[in-house]
Nucleic acid binder design. Sequence first.
DNA 1: CAACGTCATGGTAGCGCTACCATTTTTATT
DNA 2: AATAAAAATGGTAGCGCTACCATGACGTTG
Lengths: 344, 344
Amino acid sequence: MALIKPRSRRGGGRPTISDVARKAGVGAITVSRALREPERVSEELRRQIQAAVDELGYVPDPNARALASARAEVFGVLVPSLTNNVFAEVVRGIYDSLSDSPFRIQLGNTHYSGLEEERLLQVFGSQRPAALIVAGIDQTPTSRKLLENAGCPVVQVMETGPEPVDMMVGFSHLDGGRAATEHLIEAGYRRIGFIGARMDPRSQRRLAGYRAAMEKAGLFDPRLVTTTPVLSSVPLGRELFRDALAKMPTLDGVFCNNDDIALGVLFECHRASIDVPKTIGIVGFNDLDMMQVAFPSITSIRTYRYEIGRRAVAMALAAISGDRPQERIVDLGFELKRRESTAR
Amino acid sequence: MALIKPRSRRGGGRPTISDVARKAGVGAITVSRALREPERVSEELRRQIQAAVDELGYVPDPNARALASARAEVFGVLVPSLTNNVFAEVVRGIYDSLSDSPFRIQLGNTHYSGLEEERLLQVFGSQRPAALIVAGIDQTPTSRKLLENAGCPVVQVMETGPEPVDMMVGFSHLDGGRAATEHLIEAGYRRIGFIGARMDPRSQRRLAGYRAAMEKAGLFDPRLVTTTPVLSSVPLGRELFRDALAKMPTLDGVFCNNDDIALGVLFECHRASIDVPKTIGIVGFNDLDMMQVAFPSITSIRTYRYEIGRRAVAMALAAISGDRPQERIVDLGFELKRRESTAR
DNA sequence: CAACGTCATGGTAGCGCTACCATTTTTATT
DNA sequence: AATAAAAATGGTAGCGCTACCATGACGTTG
């Protein structure tokens, strides 16, 4: 006696695939198939199985699934910041594109740290994700190797560059910085400053674009550049602008690293009764929606963050299903939005 | 012959726990223990095992772990929006608190939809998460049941209320709305409007606080309230303010649902040459850092979003490790920041 | 009508790990 | 020194699912 195994169900008593199979009077594997490749199961069984699933409230265990198939239905997403609106928009695009797919999202925050990125890539890799989406193109050699060996599609987002690990969606920050600066020059500004916080690689490239445009026009002066590694914010924009002005009182324009900084500059101009755009011209970067309602409205470089997220998912999904997109590098560009802040 | 099993390694050839065990000359279970409860393994073996782990580059498979232990090292986090700074801050607090724990984060975006929340809860539940953190207290009955049966600690964040599913960290939006409105009244404003977008339950409670204060002072008039279900933004704030003013030209103050709206109102005042705070007083909600540098600086209700995220994790972690905090409802409060926009 | 696909279904054997019990060794305790 | 108790280690048996192969029932073809 005592032949009956207690069957402790350490899993907590939720129905399993064999419960469903038993109830539907089929084999477990058929249930598995009915759920994943319905077209390979006869309509009759499919219906029976569906009924059993509904009745029991069966939900497949993703962990067991991942273990058995050596592939988790997870997209790993790595961004440097969660609060920066720019990345928040990319992430939103990714979530929206994946919301009615079976894929879950594993989001990591690198805090702009290469080391943290490596650590997270390690963690993510251990899950055998279906795809990896990472911000930027400046991975450390270790990170790059991890990405190359991830064994899944990889999309680098927010930038374009010559050597994708796999695929890429973004735009040229250098060109963006150049376009912003050229616009200020064309509008008649001459002593144009660059103000930037959190000088990550993307900001560096915008600065390079600024510098290229200024040098080409014979206007560059290193004292026009004010930067800090501190995290960007509106209050910081105000302070940096005051610094810049103290350093260079003849300043007549500023290209800001991003819109937060630009807003800080605008507020300080109000406070100090500096006329915008007459005395100072302002250009931001990213074109947050508040730029168009600011008073005066602020010229900015519009970027397509949400679209970048969507596109990245679309490309990854295509690669997963076998047909890799022919173009591995997608440049979504940007647009200069001319507004009152530079309408001299 | 052919006795040697090919051992196909469909897992892709990464080292497993038995590889480590073999190399270290111990049993697999000892490796498992050395990794999870090092104090239960002798120092010598621990060192040998660590050496083997390092040499092989072994990383445990979280899926196998979750399957075997019926518990995934995952925190499920549910927020209604990814781009709203308020939730981004909460999420950041959660990430920062969990960054050097073994727990991963599964983040879900409900888009303010109860149905979507139910769906995500279902998906999350199937993973047997270690804890669940959800925004708000207005779950549908189905969601509430799912939370109650999740079999793990649950923390509701951003609000306080009488009946937590399990634990709660937040503050009273009603009191916040009341405090903001009372401040305007004390400052001498009388025709005080309420302007709100995306009237989610939290906004509704702020409105209720506004109404309570206004009625108490005998100032309430339904025509003073301007709301819309549309998603909140700075441009929308501007528009709603224009609507409000058209409807009620004698308006002399506004309590805004949130800071985005407040900023939109401020910009419109600039544009229409309406003096702030003389002609119109403005109060925002949440106190984004730009409020203090705006010109004029904007009075707002400071809320502790980041801290809410951290606290939620701390409480969940305590519950996981067995000692549930004695206070299951934590009220982190808020603070009225008086600034120029209401300094009549 | 034999020989050969093709389709629908099922059985078996793991995926990589840990819970649950042994079993052995060491350390108190009397 | 004998015994109990605690500490350290290991073996076995799954967790819930799917890859892989096997089986049988049908056509299809020459």
